[in-house]
Amino acid sequence: MTTSSNNRRRFQRIDFDAPTELRQGDRRWPVKLLDLSLKGLLVERPQPWNADLSQDFDAVIHLDPHTHVRMQVELRHEEAQRLGFVCLYIDLDSMSHLHRLVELNVADSTEMMRELRELIE
């Protein structure tokens, strides 16, 4: 796992590979997670991709059989091979797991604190 560097972003993305699923109603799409941040995630576009783009999604990242991160997300950008989502809601347990993942992959603790402050605001 490495940290993606892009100075335009307010939240550092970390490259992370874990079994991930997008859900919308009864529909499910297993996806390849490319990276994530405290504010969202980037995945490979699944085939077929027949989602209702006017509705939100649930993203579930399985860290192990008993630990997962769940987020309510909105599709923010769609490319030929990638989908970018922004987090609309995350529960406290999931946020704790996500915070720990990012913390382990961000070398600068000052940067981590800045991101947390921005998330709260």
Rank of each mutant, 00 (worst) to 15 (best):
T3P: 15
T3W: 12
N7W: 15
R8S: 12
R10I: 04
F11A: 03
Q12W: 15
Q12R: 13
Q12V: 13
I14K: 02
F16A: 01
D17H: 12
A18N: 03
P19C: 05
L22H: 05
L22K: 04
R23T: 04
Q24F: 12
D26G: 11
D26M: 08
D26N: 12
R27I: 11
R27F: 09
W29T: 09
P30E: 01
V31G: 04
K32L: 11
K32I: 11
L33Q: 05
D35Y: 09
G40M: 07
L41N: 07
L41C: 01
L42E: 04
V43K: 03
E44V: 07
P46R: 03
Q47D: 08
P48E: 09
P48T: 07
A51C: 06
D52I: 05
D56V: 14
D56N: 15
F57W: 09
D58R: 14
I61H: 02
H62C: 08
L63A: 05
L63Q: 03
P65W: 04
H66I: 09
H66K: 13
T67Q: 10
H68V: 09
H68F: 13
V69E: 07
V69A: 06
Q72T: 12
Q72P: 12
Q72Y: 07
V73R: 04
L75Y: 12
R76G: 14
H77R: 13
H77M: 10
E78H: 11
A80I: 08
A80C: 07
Q81K: 14
G84K: 03
G84E: 04
L88V: 00
Y89M: 11
I90Q: 02
D91G: 02
L92H: 07
L92W: 11
D93V: 11
M95N: 01
S96V: 06
H97A: 06
H97K: 02
L98D: 00
H99K: 00
N105L: 02
V106Y: 02
A107L: 05
S109D: 14
S109Y: 00
T110R: 10
T110I: 13
E111D: 10
M113E: 14
R114N: 13
E115C: 04
E115W: 00
R117M: 05
R117H: 11
E118R: 02
L119T: 01
I120V: 13
I120M: 04
E121H: 07
